[in-house]
Nucleic acid binder design. Sequence first.
DNA 1: TTGACGGCTGTGGCATACAAAATACAAAAT
DNA 2: ATTTTGTATTTTGTATGCCACAGCCGTCAA
Lengths: 246, 246
Amino acid sequence: MSQAQPRLRIEPLDVGLGLRKQASDAIKRAIMDMDIYGRAGEIRLDERRLSEDLGVSRTPIREALSVLEQEGFVRSIPRRGIIVVRKTKREIVEMITVWAAIESMAARLAAGAATPADIAELTGLMDAFEEDPTGHLTEYSDANMEFHRAIIRLGGIGLMSTLTDSLFIHMRAVRAVTMTQDNRAQRSVGDHRAIIAALRAGDADRAGRLVRDHTMGLAAHVERHGDFLDGPNAGGVPATNETGGK
Amino acid sequence: MSQAQPRLRIEPLDVGLGLRKQASDAIKRAIMDMDIYGRAGEIRLDERRLSEDLGVSRTPIREALSVLEQEGFVRSIPRRGIIVVRKTKREIVEMITVWAAIESMAARLAAGAATPADIAELTGLMDAFEEDPTGHLTEYSDANMEFHRAIIRLGGIGLMSTLTDSLFIHMRAVRAVTMTQDNRAQRSVGDHRAIIAALRAGDADRAGRLVRDHTMGLAAHVERHGDFLDGPNAGGVPATNETGGK
DNA sequence: TTGACGGCTGTGGCATACAAAATACAAAAT
DNA sequence: ATTTTGTATTTTGTATGCCACAGCCGTCAA
């Protein structure tokens, strides 16, 4: 009966306020913590199990899962259950492309509006890793993300930050891998410095182009080396029976 | 095994599969049909009233409202109820800017991949209005939207279509107004023709730039003349933070 | 007369109970 | 032995009831 079901480890949350949001956060955390691409087969989430693990009834669980579905973490198949989505390489590349489009525009806008203090913040993020980013890949990965988020923020369009944030969440699994390949970290620093220079010069065209090329380069890289995403069970969504048991 | 059977294909009989979606669609339709910007004061939605009107219980209504909240149509205030959101001018401008960013990138991608048939489809959308779009503003407004959606589709990034579609829904109220001002419809046709030419020439840079300038022009126009959005009750529901579903 | 406090009502949040559907298992027939 | 069908269990979808909190109104006191 209770086979090797990927039972998520989560802490029972205390009831108080915003029970639905707490539940969605907890489940989201649990999903991000588990290695989605390691396991094979579809990962199903059982409402009843979740409700008893979290100590709340199924109603807030369902609403939380509805939120997570909108955010692209799970997919609800009508009468069949809720499964954790596994982003395909194709989908990741699409997300990076959208990211490139948005950040490029943000850089254009930032080029005309960024203050010296803003520029200083950007340089500050890179300064710690100028010499040898390869040694501290984990830290640099964070600083890298923060750099891009900062540029988008400097664009002044809040919606851009909202959208890209929800894109970035799905790329946690990709970040670590891509960094270690191809000396990408080192080249990344160079690209970033060029972007900062363009922003400081107020050159919107150049800033937009550099950002676009930089991120599209990541897209091309994932396109080439991101086959681990489609991993063991390739293809897309199996339309019909795929029990996978035994 | 028994796969080659010419099994007759029957509609999956979507009744029952998605009472929640039916509810969300109905409520969404109702929201879009009413003139949100005409009325003053906050528009509250009562769960019990809705469930009574739609003939279903409150549970699917709540889930439908949860979906609508994620899509940005309504806003749930913890113990106060659910109100219909009114997009501010600022938010509309932000949405148009994001739209410009995405469609510009899509045009770049489309410039290298569009087939003559694709180009013909685009020209076909515009041909009917070349002479005098001012006479058939409603029809042209639809064709205009379809033109932009087609370009985004030609970019080949499905995520772009998904994102922009959800953006476009919120701009119905703006479409009609902006078209009638400033001879925008007529100039729109000219811009579109130039965009088609760039796509036909395979000039990614030019196509991307033209699309960006065209849409950013709309953003600037709304920025200038879109005060009716914040209209009667300026700042009716200001940034009270919280909720807002990410 | 005015302001504050307390009960009353209405609405949303959560839990639980019930029904329908799909899958898994088993048995029987070919 | 394999396939098919019937049954049972699991699991989702829906309904309803109860509870907590917010807003409102009336009354009482200063």
